[in-house]
């Protein structure tokens, strides 16, 4: 298998340095009060959305499958990791709830996150099998049905709160935590995509039959895409649960999967950069309208209530799709995410 999956290059180092620089900048702005906690919170949510969008992009964008139940994986990751951390927080009698958030706690948290990701990956592995038989819209329905089944299951497990939600989750997720994990996730998926394995995924998207004929094990690669995509969705779900301190079945419904799907498509199928930008842009847009609309109303001397926020949001979405049909990034990547040796081959797709 030609190139190794995990390679470190000068560009990658530059990318990491740039990302960490941005993190420091945000932390600095937050400390000096230029960025309120509100903005940090939006960044947190954007980052989690980045993981969700990039991991769905791996399944939908790079491998050409059609999954619309992505939040189902997030639910599995969230519930698994949060059950572990809340349980350990409870049975550690010496440590009151808030004091549990210490170094040991963080080790538990990281392990719990990984466990959540692994369990989600296991489910993703299972969901990958229908993709061998089903294509396009039919596969979409299967993934959707699966997402709804997951929700029904969590609604009926009283141990995790049923429709009350899983409560009292320790707040482990913070900006640094989320940022580092998002960065690692993005790098991992980027490295996968630019490896030989990534080429195989792309070949399935472009022409499944042809890629099989040239010897790509499409069965293995499709299931791999689902498994890895689900793993990262599970991680994102875990991060989100430990940020909001609640995991509720309704958070993982069809509508949220659709929102992630929009981020992937608006950013560009098969562009990691696009997914990152779209996740940030759409999250900030929905929050920005909260402030912008009443301001706009003041200018025009009319009262524009919060109920119009989503009207404008959906309208902007339509307009973006109509006038930016090539979507944000098409299949391009920012230079820092493309390995040096790739560049000479031009477009990687």
């Amino acid at each position: 298998m030609g190139k190794k999956i995990f390679f470190i290059s000068r560009r990658m180092l530059l990318f990491v340095a740039g990302a960490l620089g941005m993190l420091l900048l945000v932390l600095f702005f937050n400390a000096t009060g230029i960025f309120t906690d509100y903005i940090v919170q939006i960044i947190n949510i954007s980052l989690i959305n980045v993981i969700l969008a990039v991991s769905l992009n791996l399944i939908n964008g790079f491998t050409g499958q059609f999954s619309i139940g992505h939040m189902g994986f997030a639910a599995v990751g969230a519930y698994t990791s949060a059950t572990v951390t809340t349980l350990i927080a409870k049975v550690t009698p010496r440590l009151p709830y808030t004091e549990f958030i210490n170094i040991n706690g963080y080790i538990v948290f990281i392990l719990a996150l990984l466990l959540g990701g692994i369990v989600a990956a296991g489910i993703g592995f299972l969901i990958g099998f229908p993709s061998l038989r089903l294509k396009g819209d039919y596969l979409a329905i299967i993934t959707l049905g699966f997402g709804e089944i997951i929700r029904t299951i969590f609604n009926n497990i009283d141990y995790v709160g049923g429709p009350r939600g899983l409560l009292g989750i320790p707040k482990f997720s913070n900006l640094i935590m989320i940022f580092v994990i998002t960065l690692l996730s993005v790098i991992a998926i980027r490295n996968l995509v630019f490896s030989t394995h990534g080429r195989a995924l792309l070949s399935i998207r472009e022409n499944e039959l042809a890629s099989e004929l040239v010897g790509v094990n499409t069965v293995r690669y499709k299931i791999t895409a689902f498994t890895i995509g689900a793993f990262f969705a599970g991680i994102a779900g875990g991060l989100q649960a430990h940020l909001l301190q609640i995991a509720h079945p309704t958070q993982y419904g069809f509508l949220y999967s659709i929102l992630v799907l929009i981020m992937v498509y608006a950013g560009g199928m098969g562009s990691i950069t696009g997914s990152i930008i779209a996740a940030f842009a759409l999250t900030f847009l929905s929050e920005g309208l909260r402030t912008a609309l009443p301001g706009l109303g003041d200018l025009m001397h009319v009262k524009i209530g919060d109920e119009w926020r989503m009207v404008v949001y959906s309208l902007l979405l339509i307009i973006i799709m109509l006038f930016r049909t090539e979507v944000l990034m098409g299949m391009r990547e920012m230079k820092l995410l493309v390995p040096e040796e790739e560049e000479h081959h031009g477009q990687h797709a």
């Binding site: 498509y265 199928m269 009207v311 309208l315 979405l317 049909t325």
Partner: peptide
């Protein structure tokens, strides 16, 4: 898929509107 996303946008717009 562009039409699909647009369709979702149209659906959201009609409901919220």
């Amino acid at each position: 898929l562009s039409s699909l996303i647009t369709a979702i946008g149209v659906s959201m717009f009609i409901e919220y509107f």
